[in-house]
């Protein structure tokens, strides 16, 4: 029976390893949630300059948008706060189908 390698699932360990390899990386963190949110506050996603990522800040609903914002953060070096709400083409580019709202803080790891 194949089991997931729990070591590889630890986002902060992955972040430290990637930084140690000289990769430019950003760390995204869920800092606030309202209503039904897929991942609790404190959840991390680590992203490198090539768009590789590990971890999660939602159930896969907004990771794509967070990754592209993270590339800007890696370039500019300035942290950003992102907010995602219910998936709605008129109000949000991407969103959470579960109906919750989340705030995600994206910062560069220097």
């Amino acid at each position: 029976m194949a089991e997931p390698n729990v070591q590889n699932l630890d986002v902060l360990t992955t972040a430290e390893r990637w930084a140690g390899e000289g990769r430019a990386i950003a760390l995204a963190t869920v800092v606030e949630t309202w209503g039904s949110a897929p991942r609790p506050t404190g959840s991390h996603l680590v992203i490198d300059a090539d768009g590789n990522f590990e971890g999660s800040v939602s159930g896969g609903c907004v990771e794509g948008a967070v990754v592209s914002e993270a590339l800007d953060v890696i370039d500019a070096g300035v942290a950003k706060m992102l907010e995602f709400g219910v998936a709605d083409e008129t109000a949000w580019r991407v969103g959470l189908s579960c109906g919750g709202r989340i705030r995600v803080y994206v910062e560069k790891v220097n």
């Binding site: 902060l12 760390l27 790891v109 220097n110």
Partner: peptide, 26 residues
């Protein structure tokens, strides 16, 4: 986040000690 902070945090986690990262949002 500073790499030094990340490494220190992972060090505490590896030692099974609680730690809190405090971030001023502004």
């Amino acid at each position: 986040m500073d790499r030094a902070l990340l490494e220190a945090l992972n060090g505490e986690r590896a030692q099974r000690r609680a730690a809190v990262v405090v971030t001023k949002i502004a």
